[in-house]
Design a protein around this nucleic acid. Structure first.
Lengths: 242, 242
DNA sequence: TATGTTTTTTAGCTTGGGCTAAAAATAGAA
DNA sequence: TTCTATTTTTAGCCCAAGCTAAAAAACATA
């Protein structure tokens, strides 16, 4: 197989704007800003905390990102991504999530180790590698955490899920995302089959202590504390079964 | 599969000496010295040529490699690897060759693209990744070029192959290695099935122009010019078939 | 042996990505 | 509104890994 479907995709779209790939450091900043900034720009100190570096270094880089046309930056108010910056960030997120999927599904990695390895690899792989990997994995739409995988052109469908802790009583919901990286958390849920894709019925959301009671597809009951329930994201499930 | 056989291997052996991994630049120097130096140390300019950098930079780094205990260096005479340097180099070579194998066999890469991608990835992957990949690939002893893959502990069995151009007439030999990276070369041989593992009989080695005549297992004849024949490495084949 | 060529080294500069400490701006509380 | 606490920025430094240009050593050959 030489220059199969994968090459069609990546040759036609990525890196339209950046003549040379951003350094891995630049990429880390873009991802951090993307993850932190919502309606507000990402603050210097938040980015510093996430990347475990000093605020001074972040201030510095914000300036450079602006010059590079990857971010908008206003002194004392933080940085937000330009369209190009966002696309670059999403390219990395795509890589990260595809690599995580590969590590878990094909190399037998444990949840604990997956993130760190992907963090390094995402800066080393080419677009070609990424698209071939996507093909090998069957073009998944979500990674094993349930996070959506951005498209090859750096776009990401807006997410419409809400925390389990806010679900309505009696509702049938599908788990779409588990928003935590810690191993005990993931292991606990994994053992009980509460993983992305599963459909459960919400039996009770107790106002008193936030405990959520669930029944899964096999009739098993689960009782989750508030701290767990607010990290499990769900969508309303319409049909009986997909 | 959590912490399977792979983790047994790598947790017990690698990085005995280096507390933190050598920078990717250091690794490139070690590999270059390993590839270049035989009985003689590797010269400044040879390493510079291979890494496409200036000789001055190489001189500089040779000093640092010595301080780090990875190379022996004598001014104006070049550098050679210490035991530790050699082990580090071979760890990288192992990674490189396993990654190349994966790219070709599982991701459908073409010969052209494999080397460059592996060159980047080998600096990003962990020992854990490497050993799990080895497992996925079935612990191959050679990569698709026929080059031997060093063991996880950084050792490499000495190679006993010689160029096809030096084979004896009438000898049955097994192709073990193709020592060239160029695409046309590899494609030509690939189309004719002259790939590592194949057994052929040498019919003639013409002194006049160095052309080697072969007969393969299907009775097909091949005539290779000297420039090709000296890059195909073979071993004497004893049994009729393996 | 003397002399010129090639190779290697030295000296000094550049860039990217960090750092700390001190100054400036912003935000919160009295 | 003013004053203090926090955050952000500035200024100046360090290190790794390159570079060029010039000096020094090694080599080759007349």
């Amino acid at each position: 197989m030489i220059g199969g479907p994968a090459s069609l995709i990546f040759s036609s779209m990525t890196n339209l704007s950046l003549t040379q790939p951003p350094s891995s450091s630049v990429g880390d900043y873009l991802k951090a800003i993307w993850e932190i900034s919502g309606s507000e720009p990402a603050s210097t100190s938040d980015v510093a905390a996430r990347l475990l570096i000093s605020s001074a270094s972040v201030t510095n880089k914000f300036g450079r990102l602006q010059e590079m046309g990857l971010a908008r930056y206003e002194r004392y108010r933080g940085a937000s991504l330009t369209r190009r910056g966002r696309r670059e960030a999403l390219r990395l997120v795509r890589r990260h999530r595809l690599i995580e999927t590969f590590l878990l599904e094909h190399l037998g990695y444990s949840w604990q180790d997956v993130h760190e390895e992907a963090e390094r690899l995402e800066h080393a792989v080419s677009d070609e590698f990424t698209e071939r990997l996507a093909e090998l994995l069957g073009h998944p739409e979500r990674d094993p955490h349930g996070d959506p995988i951005p498209a090859a052109d750096g776009t990401l469908a807006p997410e419409r899920s809400s925390p389990l802790s806010e679900a309505g009583i009696g509702q049938r919901v599908r788990i779409v995302k588990v928003d935590d990286e810690s191993a005990p958390f993931l292991n606990y849920l994994g053992e009980r089959g509460l993983v992305p894709g599963r459909v459960v019925r919400v039996e009770e959301v107790r106002a008193l202590d936030g405990v959520v009671a669930l029944e899964d597809e096999y009739g098993e009951k689960h009782h989750l504390g508030e701290s767990l329930a607010c990290r499990i994201f769900v969508q309303k499930e319409l049909k009986k079964r997909t």
